[in-house]
Amino acid sequence: MTVAPDDSRQSSTPYTAMRGVLESLDDTVPGKFEISKQGIVHDMMSPGRPHVFTAGLIGRRLERVMPEGIWAVAGEPDVEDEPEGIMRRPDVMVIALDEMEGEGSFDPRTLIAAIEVVSQSNPDNDWVGKMREYPLMGVPVYAVFDPRTGTGAVMSDIHATPDGPRYATRKDFVYGEDVTVADWTISTEGLPRYAG
């Protein structure tokens, strides 16, 4: 579900108003909140076991092949591009350890890759919204794993288009194949699927 910003607040930008709304809802409303160019995105269902398990497996598999000093981090904090008015929370972020120091949200331009596990309740958020916004935020590699279909894609090579920055390269995969995210190749064998 996407909620449009309330433009009635004159003292703040629509983005800061939405950020304030999210802070007031913190820990009181179930689900996951993000801010897209279209407004607040609320994934009403908290991630279930297959979603969390997939993110965990991907992170662990990446960390086994990445060099010391590069991490695959799950969960919070957010990745925020305030000038663009976007705040996202990737399921897994590939980032250098040095970039993890400090407080607050991560600068999206410090990420090596953002990885999303498609939500059962809001798949367009990952396949459409984030596909459009991650290149705008400067995230160089975006990987999508879809437990609904047992497929996914890795996008890279940001380039300018009349509609704004987009990924020029897309490599699709099916579960069971090896997949390369940034510079590291992992197996997708045994990743869980959503039931029914």
Rank of each mutant, 00 (worst) to 15 (best):
N125P: 03
A114C: 06
G102H: 06
A72H: 12
G104V: 08
V79N: 00
A113L: 12
W71F: 09
V118K: 01
P123F: 09
P77K: 07
D98M: 05
P108H: 01
E76T: 14
G102Y: 05
N125C: 04
D91I: 08
V94G: 01
E84R: 15
I70K: 02
E103C: 07
R88L: 15
D78S: 15
M87S: 15
A114Y: 01
D81W: 00
R89M: 10
E76H: 07
S121M: 06
P108C: 05
G102R: 07
G85E: 13
N122K: 11
A74D: 06
S119M: 08
P123L: 11
D98S: 15
S105L: 02
I112C: 03
P83A: 01
A74L: 11
Q120L: 08
I95S: 01
V73D: 02
E101Y: 11
G85S: 12
V92D: 01
R88A: 14
E116I: 07
R89N: 09
E101D: 14
A96N: 11
I70W: 06
E82L: 03
G102S: 10
E76S: 14
P123K: 05
I70G: 03
E103Q: 13
P123G: 06
M100Y: 05
E84P: 03
G102W: 03
D107T: 10
V73A: 08
G104K: 12
G69C: 12
Q120G: 09
V117H: 04
